[in-house]
Design a protein around this nucleic acid. Structure first.
Lengths: 236, 236
DNA sequence: GTCTATAAGAAGATAGAC
DNA sequence: GTCTATCTTCTTATAGAC
């Protein structure tokens, strides 16, 4: 979680105000997009004038950057201690949290699709963020392979599977944004369970005979902090 | 493809011009979104002034509606003659086409995420379009069940699987928008193949008692007995 | 039917008072 | 640090010439 040390003295209100601005901007950008949201709306939400925003951020994109940084901080703390398949088993819980506080996922999907325009200012951020996420999933899947939690899978298959899981998650959450009565967390959990069953059974690519699955106890789990793999989300 | 009956007489240039405007608007809205794209850009693309657009469309949203209608026409002709699992086997080909002419899928994902705002003018369209697509997939899966192409699956599981397939497709195409060097059609085909294998084997989810799934949006749940010829695509 | 010209307003950014 | 007031630009929409 975001932990902000609030100093005493004259800067206190400034820091608090900045925080309020970022929160309001998160809501506005999530709902109307970056292009569709205006600084006037954000300032109005906070209860200040647009000029006050300029004291804290150089321009509109500077504010978006602060919002995106905030988003990363809010999301990256959730999976501490997860290893191997446990990471994927926890994903439905993240979806569940998104349905209770929809701003974050709404913002991510909004910015990601907006950034499909190569000229979009947040394009580089979105590309980097997706690479990061996919590399994370690839790392955990490799860990699961080394722990013997899953059947044989080469690196290429692992990247395909990781991309598929995050694609499924994004797509389901997009469906939920358009239909909030959808029990998306439960649906996603059922889908992830089926994928995990297949992985555990030994995800065979086409028709190759299944290699013996080593289902024994996992060897000592060495801490793989951030599996920064070369899954190359490609991005040239 | 779209077949337009061109009347003789003085209306010909008008119809051609209208078509040009819709094409340009598709490009602009796909790239910059509905909020981010301007009538000026569109007019400039066509080579006319913004006021000329008002001759053909009441307002900006009227133009968007025309674009979305055009999108539906372009997509619904692709699956004629497909039945049961064949429908799903053809989906990767649709993804392939989207990579060659990215405007349509870019537009769809853009509008769908923008419409996550309940006040967005295209919200109703996006909701209806998603319901339509999901119902289409559900219909084809039921057909596959009746044809004996897949193992036992109840209606609730069928809806989950259909939603999963379209979520996967959307999510993969979103990844591709941010990374056009990604071989998304091949990746998606591998993923669909794995899903088809599981279906054919008779996907057995873990037994779990649960309440009935909430179906589509309020106005949804039209009869899905006969999937008809038209099939939509990537969603919405 | 199509366009130029322009109205009316909203956007992001800035200057300077307090 | 925050505000009022203002600037420039760009938006949608309309009036009326041809």
């Amino acid at each position: 979680m975001t932990k902000v040390v609030i100093p005493r003295g004259p800067y206190r209100t400034g820091i608090k105000r900045r925080r309020e601005i970022v929160d309001a901007a998160s809501r506005i950008f999530a709902r109307y997009g970056y292009a569709g949201g205006s600084l006037r709306q954000i300032a109005g939400d906070v209860g200040v004038t647009p000029a006050a925003l300029a004291r804290h951020f150089d321009n509109k994109y500077g504010l978006l950057q602060a919002v995106l940084t905030h988003w990363e901080e809010e999301n990256d703390y959730r999976f501490e201690g997860a290893h191997g398949l446990e990471y994927f088993r926890r994903l439905p819980q993240l979806v569940e949290e998104h349905t209770k506080e929809p701003g974050l996922i709404e913002l991510l999907l909004t910015v990601a699709t907006e950034a499909s325009d190569p000229q979009h200012p947040a394009r580089a951020w979105a590309v980097q963020r997706y690479d990061h996420t996919i590399n994370l999933g690839v790392g955990y899947l490799r860990e699961a392979r080394e722990l013997g939690e899953i059947g044989a899978m080469n690196d290429e298959q692992i990247e395909m599977e990781a991309r598929g899981v995050f694609a499924l998650m994004d797509g389901m959450q997009l469906q939920w944004l358009l239909n909030p009565s959808l029990p998306v967390a439960r649906l996603f959990k059922d889908q992830i369970d089926l994928i995990l069953q297949r992985w555990e059974r030994g995800g065979k690519p086409r028709r190759r005979a299944r290699p013996p699955a080593t289902r024994g106890n996992p060897p000592a789990a060495q801490d793989i902090k951030e599996p920064e793999t070369g899954a190359s989300a490609a991005r040239a």
